[in-house]
C-alpha cells in the first residue's frame, strides 16, 4: 500500500441522528475512518455505540444525516453491488436451494444487462468455485432450513461474494453460532478475504473475534455514538488459533475490554459497592 493510494472506503465527518418523538438520539457523531483496499477492519463497542448504524450507512441501507462515505474516491448514494452485506440471520431465501441462493444475483437486471455469454459461463464457474471454497458441495440441493446455523452463514457469505464485491460488510455474522463453529468460520473468512482480496468491515461485540480477524480494531462508544480509538493488531497476516494465547493478543484484548467498560456507562458490581461505601479492600 503506497502512501498516495486512494482508500477503498473513506468515511468523513459522518453524523446520524434519529428523531424519536421530541427527543433526538445521536447515533453517530463525527465519525472519520479510512480503510485501505484488502484491509480487514472490525468495529467493537458497547450497545448503542452506533457500530451497526455505521455499517448500514456504508452499505447504503440507511442515509447519513451529514458527512460522506466514499468508495474508491466516489461518494455513495445508496446500496451498490460493490458492497455486499452479510447479516446475522434471516437473510437467506428459504424457498431457494443453496445453489439457487448463491446464484440469486444472476437473475437481477443489473447483472443480466452487463453480461455476455462468456460472463454467464464465468459466473457458472464462479458459483461452483464458491461452493467448493465454502465447503458446500454436499448440500448444494438442500434448502436453507435443512442446514445448521454455520452452514447457513457459509451460504450467505458465498452469495454475497458471487458478484465479486470489492467490499464485504458483515453485521455480527457469527453472533448466533456456537464457539467451535465460530472458530472454523473465523479461519474460513480470513482465508476468503486473502484469496479474494476483499476489503472487510465487520461488526461484532466479541473482542477476541475482533482482534483475531482484523488488521485494525475500531473501538466505538455510546451516547453519542462515536469512534473512540483505533488499535493496530500486532499479529502477522496469516493467523492461527494459537495466536490468541500470545502476550500481544492478551494485552490488546485487556486494553480494548477496559475501553468498552469505561465508555459503556454501565456500572459493574464493584462500582455499585463502592458507591454504597463498602467496597472490598484491595
Amino acid at each position: 500500500m503506497t502512501i498516495m493510494s486512494i482508500p477503498r472506503i473513506q468515511i468523513e465527518a459522518l453524523d446520524k441522528r434519529f428523531e424519536t418523538g421530541d427527543c433526538e438520539v445521536i447515533a453517530l457523531q463525527d465519525a472519520n475512518l479510512s480503510i485501505a483496499p484488502a484491509e480487514f477492519v472490525t468495529l467493537v463497542g458497547a450497545s448503542g455505540c452506533g457500530k451497526s448504524t455505521l455499517l448500514r450507512i456504508v452499505g447504503g441501507l440507511e442515509p447519513a444525516s451529514s458527512g460522506t462515505v466514499s468508495v474508491d474516491g466516489k461518494p455513495i448514494s445508496g446500496p451498490g453491488i460493490d458492497r455486499a452485506m452479510v447479516f446475522q440471520h434471516y437473510s437467506l431465501y428459504p424457498w431457494l436451494t443453496v445453489t439457487e441462493n448463491i446464484k440469486f444475483c444472476r437473475q437481477l437486471k443489473m447483472h443480466r444487462d452487463v453480461s455476455t455469454s462468456s460472463d454467464v459461463e464465468a459466473a457458472g464457474g464462479r458459483a461452483d468455485a464458491l461452493i467448493r471454497l465454502m465447503g458446500l458441495g454436499h448440500v448444494m440441493q438442500a434448502y436453507p432450513n435443512q442446514l445448521s446455523g454455520g452452514m447457513q452463514q457459509r451460504v450467505a457469505i458465498a452469495r454475497a461474494l458471487m458478484a465479486r464485491p470489492r467490499i464485504l460488510l458483515m453485521d455480527e455474522p457469527f453472533g448466533a453460532l456456537d464457539a467451535q463453529t465460530r472458530e472454523v468460520m473465523h479461519d474460513l473468512i480470513l482465508h476468503v478475504s486473502i484469496l479474494e482480496k476483499t476489503t472487510l468491515l465487520f461488526v461484532t461485540h466479541d473482542v477476541e473475534e475482533a482482534i483475531y480477524l482484523a488488521h485494525r480494531v475500531v473501538l466505538m462508544a455510546p451516547r453519542p455514538g462515536r469512534i473512540e480509538a483505533i488499535y493496530e493488531v500486532p499479529l502477522p497476516d496469516h493467523r492461527d488459533q494459537d495466536m490468541k494465547q500470545t502476550q500481544e493478543f492478551l494485552a490488546l484484548k485487556k486494553q480494548i475490554l477496559a475501553g468498552i467498560r469505561a465508555t459503556s456507562g454501565m456500572q459493574t458490581d464493584h462500582d455499585l459497592l463502592e458507591q454504597l461505601g463498602n467496597a472490598p479492600a484491595h
Binding site: P79, A84, M85, F87, S91, F104, L108, A160
Partner: peptide, 19 residues
Amino acid sequence: EQIEAAQTMGADRDEIVMR
C-alpha cells in the same frame, strides 16, 4: 434482512417485490 440482502445485490424496487 431478506429485502436488504437483495438491495445490496443490486435488486431494484420491482425485483425486490417480485423476487
